[in-house]
Structures are given as C-alpha cells and as structure tokens.
Design a protein around this nucleic acid. Structure first.
Lengths: 153, 153
DNA sequence: TTACCAATGTAATAACATAACAAACATAAA
DNA sequence: TTTATGTTTGTTATGTTATTACATTGGTAA
C-alpha cells in the first residue's frame, strides 16, 4: 500500500498533466479520454481494459474499441503504461519526465510503483551496447512484495 | 540474425538438456512435450501458442489445452520462457544455468537473444532493496534492432 | 457552406488462455 | 497379475484480451 493520502489529488494531478500535454501538442483531451484516464487512476493498482469498459457508464457507448482507442491515445502520449505481464494498464506517475522507467508490482496489494532512471537504465544501455543491440523499447516489470505488505505479514 | 550455424544442433542440445533435466527430477519428458519443445526451437525467434497448435500434426490431438499444458511444463522446468510483450514463447538457451535473465528482441528479424547475469541483475536488486521491495519474478524484455539487422540496412 | 480530418459508434471476429471433466496410461503396492 | 493411484492427455466449452472494418458524428478551416 502507498501511505495513506488524499488519492483524489493523484487523479487531479494526472488530469491536469494530461490537459497540459494535450494542449502543448495540439491534441484533444476529450471527455472519453479524460474519463478513461480517471478510471485508470481510480487506484494505484493496474486496471484491465474490460474493467474500464464496465465502468464507462451510459455516458459512453462502451464497446471494446472505445476503450482500447482511448488507452492507445493515452499510452502514445505517455499518460498511461501497459503492464504486459498482467495485460493491464497503469497511470504514468510522471508524464513527460518519463524515460527508461520500470515497474514494481506487488502481488499482495496489487499496487504498482513506477521507477525511473537510476543505475538500472545505465546497466541496460551498457549491456545492449556490448551486444551491438539498439534498444527501442524496454519492458521491465518486477513482481514481488512491497514494503508495506511485508510489514503487514 | 544469428551467425549461420547448423541449427539442428540447437534443437538437439535443447532436447538433450531436457532429457537430462527431466531424468534428474523424475519427470516424464513425453512425446508431446518433446515435440512442443522441438517446435519452439524450430527457429531462434519466439513462437505463438496457436502456431504450435497448428504444427502439432495428427500425431497429437491438438487443442489449446494440449499446447498450453506442454508449455507450462516446459516453463516450470526452465526449458522455455514466455515473452510477455509478445504473447509468445522461446526456448531457454541455457537451462539450469538460468538466473536473472532477460531478452533482446529484434523487431526486424524477430530473433530473441537471452542474456544473463551481468550488472543489470545487480542494479535491479539494489534498486528493489532500496525500495524495500522483495522481488519474486522479473520480466525484462528489450525490443530493438540487433547488430546483424543494423549492418544489413 | 463545404470539405476535411479526427474521434467515436457499432458489429463482428480474431487472438490468447483456462476450467472442468473424461479417458488413457505408467508405476508401484498388494 | 491385478488393483490402486496419480499423472498425462483428450475433449468440450467458455473466458479473456484485442483488432478489423466500416458507419457516423463532430470540430475546424478554406
């Protein structure tokens, strides 16, 4: 668990960042996209596409493409990440500053923490370089137990 | 591409290793399991479960559970890895020696190279430790362009 | 207004994976 | 050898995740 906090702030911040980013890029942060982003941020865990679908109330005609298109837009603009090992999605904790990030996934409480930079990225670059490999995209997802959940057990 | 080589040797080696491992562990390396492992090793790319399904000829009754069970067995015994970002499977290049490994996936030629150890694993452990996170399983998959494909372009 | 492109609606289907139960088969104890 | 047991495979059905293709709507600028 994350420390107790006014989670509404997280959502607000995410929406604000999204507004700013779309503005800068001349993109439309539509009702649908905003709504999906809010749902993704409803908690600090990851969210499944079909759960989003169920929670897009009657305001939207919720068919799979509706959700996947919104997720695609949000991913392209760094507002959401896909967690491949879970087939699920999380809100990006620091859009724009985002580079070489990876995820700590607690399988007890299901929260996902996003980490950036550090020695890991460097070690990865070194390793790839030694192999003559040019990386485009890295998927780094670590499943385990977070600090809070260890303390609790 | 990997350098040209007698790929049949890779398959042979994989089967031999599998035989040895199953033997040591008192497990049954059945025809089905052997056949699936051979198909996984048919090339150095990753293979999709439903492609395996199509290629399990009439010798086996090929329904999805058939394939997924074989893959599960092979994964449990370190003979095959799943590539989450592709929903696909690759043969393990060094069963048993396998620890903290990760994958370089070339999106030009589709080959997958498995890497182990090195500073990366260490950096990951450090990072997790600093966060008080206890890792159980790491998914590390790097998509990019391999050396051979850069040279070719 | 028209023309255009982006966004969304809608239906169908593709791709990936598992549940639940039955049958076949190996192995070892009786 | 027979029986009992657990493992492996067969089979049907279904659950889950994601995309294709085409129609419609809506914003924006010529």
């Amino acid at each position: 668990m994350l420390g107790s906090h006014e989670h509404a702030h997280c959502i607000e911040d995410a929406i604000e960042a999204a507004n700013r980013i779309c503005d800068e890029r001349g993109l439309r942060f539509t009702d649908l996209r905003r709504h999906v982003l809010e749902l993704v941020w409803a908690n600090h865990g990851s969210v499944k596409a079909y759960d989003l679908l169920e929670n897009l109330d009657s305001e939207f005609s919720a068919k799979p493409p509706t959700v996947y298109r919104a997720l695609e837009f949000l991913q392209e603009n760094g507002l959401v990440h896909k967690i491949s090992s879970l087939n699920a999605y999380v809100g990006c904790e620091h859009p724009l500053k985002h580079r070489d990030c990876f995820f700590l996934i607690c399988s007890e409480c299901n929260e996902v923490a996003e980490c950036c930079g550090s020695n890991v990225a460097e070690a990865l670059r070194d390793m790839a370089t030694r192999q003559g490999f040019v990386p485009h995209h890295t998927t780094l997802e670590i499943e385990g137990t977070c600090q809070a959940c260890q303390a609790a057990s």
